[in-house]
Amino acid sequence: MEEDVLTTLKILIIGESGVGKSSLLLRFTEDSFNPDQSITIGVDFKTKKLTTEGNTVRLAIWDTAGQERFRTLTPSYYRDAQGAILVYDVTSKQTFTKLDTWLSELDTFSTKSNIVKMVVGNKIDKDGREVSRDEGIKFARRHATLFIESSAKTQDGVQCAFEELVQKIIQTPGLWESMRSKNTISVDGDNNESEPSCGGWKCSLS
C-alpha cells in the first residue's frame, strides 16, 4: 500500500514551555495556527508524509503533551527517536539558555547515539528579540546541531526545518535502516480479530 514510503521516522519536539512547540507541529502537519494556543492538551503525535530529494518518508512527530513543564517527560518519550527539534523563543533569553539542559536530557535518554538534532529559534515574527540569529548559530555550531529560525505564525522556516532534518537523518548511516530488525510485536486493534495460527488451543474447541 505504501511502497513509496521509505520508512517512518520518529521526531521529537522539546524545549521550554511556551516556546511554540505545538504550534510548530500544527503549522507543519496541518498548516494551522492558533494564536491562543495555551498549554498543550490533547496533542499526542501527528504523522505526515514528506518528500525531500526524491525520498518519501513518513514522519511521526511527537509532542511533549505538556510533560516538559516540570521536566517530567518520561524516558519512554525519547526511545528510538531519529531526530529531535530543540525549540527556543527568540524573544526570551531564558528559553535559549535552558537549551543546555534539554540537550543533556536528550543525551541521557535517547537510545540512538547518532540522533540528528536541530535547534530552532521560533517566534521571529514577534518584536522584542532577546536572542540574535548569530547567538543561535554559534550555539548550534558548538553542539554540532542543525539550526534554523522560524515563525509558526507566519510559516517562515517551518517546512524548511523539517525538510533539512529529514535529509540529515536519511544521510546518517545506521540511523534508520535497521528498524524492526528485532521482530518486535505491536499490539493494536487487529489483535482482537486475529485467529490463532495452528498450534493455538482455541481453534480446537470450535
Binding site: G66, F70, Y77
Partner: peptide, 19 residues
Amino acid sequence: EILQAFCRLSAVYGGIYCL
C-alpha cells in the same frame, strides 16, 4: 514503560506531571 505509557495518555489529556 507500561506505566509511563499510561502517564503519557494522562498528560495528553491534560494531566499535570511533577516528579
